[in-house]
């Protein structure tokens, strides 16, 4: 019988996500970014996260990709020019490389963030506290993590409710459509504020922040495998930075 898969400790996941996404933001070289993407995909495969989940996320962001690619292409004229309108360079080799780097960067971040799904939000909070993050701050992170999908759901519901009012969004002029989006934001923002107020009251009622320390039901210990992964990610990040910035300086 095969041994049941046990995901790495929250601290390891936080470290992995932090180091890979930080490098994705800091590095601009396309080959380094490709390498980071490969490492991120290997991390997903090793933790048995389906790559289809990443593909679905990427599909959702396809317009953002396109818009960013166009902006990058326009703001980085240089190298070989492929398309020009008067004096303005529309598509050039430098612009295309900049667009590809942005796309790689977003893909890496979307991929590594999936690692957080291996642990529930409470375990991630404990992980942050074990990393010496003050617990009120860790809880703030937990609430933000909880709020993101809820906000997305509220936005989808508002879009549906708008259409159920007999409004065909595709049929209305662009200016009116922008005004309509401000209307959509009202239930989403108001809902978020109401929810935040309720959560704050509920947490105060449970003596949140009444004491500087608190006890935790689960206080996991790092396994030898976790230590190896943690050490590996710190060392890997340090080595990558030395080579990347060292190479640039040389």
């Amino acid at each position: 019988m095969s041994k049941a898969f046990s995901p790495p400790d929250s601290r390891v996941l936080i470290m992995l996500v932090f180091s890979l996404s930080a490098m994705a933001i800091a590095f601009t070289d396309i080959f380094w970014l490709s390498g980071l993407l490969l490492v991120s995909l290997l991390a997903l495969a090793a933790t048995r996260i389906s790559l289809w989940r990443l593909v679905r996320r990427l599909r959702r962001f396809r317009w953002l990709f396109f818009i960013l690619a166009v902006i990058q292409s326009l703001t980085h004229p240089g190298g070989q020019v492929f398309l020009q309108w008067g004096e303005t360079v529309l598509v050039s080799s430098h612009g295309l490389l900049a667009a590809v780097s942005v796309m790689l960067r977003i893909t890496i971040i979307l991929a590594v963030v999936l690692l957080f799904t291996l642990r529930d939000s409470q375990q991630l909070v404990v992980g942050l506290v074990q990393m010496k993050v003050p617990y009120p701050l860790a809880y703030m992170v937990l609430l933000e993590i909880r709020f993101i999908p809820v906000l997305g759901e509220d936005f989808t519901d508002a879009l549906l409710a708008i259409q159920l009012r007999g409004i065909d969004m595709k049929a209305i002029p662009l200016g009116a459509r922008f005004r309509l989006y401000t209307n959509i934001l009202l239930p989403v923002v108001a809902g978020a504020l109401i929810r935040a107020r309720r959560i704050a009251t509920a947490m105060d009622a449970r003596a949140f922040r009444a004491y500087t320390r608190r006890t935790w039901l689960d206080w996991p210990r790092l396994t030898p495998g976790d230590w190896v992964l943690l050490g590996g990610s710190v060392a890997g990040t340090a080595i990558a930075c030395v080579f990347y910035y060292g190479g640039m300086i040389l």
């Binding site: 549906l160 409710a161 259409q163 239930p187 809902g191």
Partner: peptide, 24 residues
Amino acid sequence: WPMSQRGEKIGYVFQNPEKQLFCS
């Protein structure tokens, strides 16, 4: 039926009415 036309034919009131309030 497009969703907007369904909304014209059948009115739907959600359990939480706040999800259907858009104006000031």
